[in-house]
């Protein structure tokens, strides 16, 4: 349900950008695939990770060849859905109305909003968002008929950090915390997992 909602939001922002654009307004919406390599399993085998990625960038021109703005989207990493929100920059090289080279850089955070926080009598667990860095390079191909819509293809590196926290509650009848910075009061044990996903993203989309 939430995924559908997100797709709708992206779709409407897309539609809105078509009709609501000003001259300074820039929108780049792309769909693509994230490629990565999972950690080695117990027997030393490594599997590839191939998942969906959606990114929509909304920005404003700050000069003839540069745009800054905000990108949002959805990235799937194996079983975790991550919503990236980042400040982004796009630069263009080449003549207008000709295929141009696009360079981009996004920096922000990714949040596992769809992953449910669990809290029972015994434990609680949650995903924690993390830093996102993504330089990209791509091509912009202006459409032949329309003057404003262009096709884009891009290739990006995406570095996404994520965390997972699981804490088991203390069941001592009158628990007393330790003088320990590593174990927060109220927990008998915690498990913290930090994920760092390195991905190559191939995307195709449009600029309006």
């Amino acid at each position: 349900m939430k995924v559908q909602l997100l797709v709708l939001v992206i779709f409407f922002s897309f539609v809105q950008s078509v009709f609501g654009q000003g001259k300074a307004y820039y929108n780049q919406t792309e769909f693509g695939v994230l490629f990565g390599k999972k950690t080695d399993s117990w027997d030393g085998q490594s599997e590839n990770r191939v998942d969906l990625s959606i990114l929509t960038f909304h920005g404003a021109k700050i000069s003839k060849n540069q745009v800054i703005g905000i990108s949002v989207g959805l990235d799937q990493y194996d079983w975790i859905s991550v919503f990236p929100i980042a400040f982004g920059w796009r630069g263009f090289l080449g003549k207008a109305n000709k295929p141009q080279l696009i360079g981009g850089f996004d920096m922000g955070g990714g949040f596992a909003l769809l992953e449910k926080k669990e809290k029972t009598e015994w434990y609680e667990s949650r995903y924690q968002g993390g830093l996102l860095l993504s330089p990209s390079i791509g091509m912009k191909f202006p459409s032949k008929k329309g003057k404003k819509t262009s096709l884009t293809m891009s290739l990006a590196y995406k570095r996404q950090e994520l965390g997972f926290f699981q804490g088991f509650f203390e069941f001592n009848p009158t628990p007393r915390p330790f003088t320990s910075t590593s174990l927060p009061p109220g927990y008998s044990s915690i498990t913290e997992t930090s994920y760092l996903f390195h991905s190559l993203v191939a995307r195709i989309g449009f600029i309006f």
Binding site: G36, K37, F178, S182, I190, T191, S194, Y195, L196, H198
Partner: peptide, 16 residues
């Protein structure tokens, strides 16, 4: 994708 860095997963377990 063949040569790229692998994902990194670090788990720490803290308990009494």
């Amino acid at each position: 994708s063949l040569t790229s860095c692998q994902d990194e997963v670090m788990t720490t377990h803290t308990y009494r």
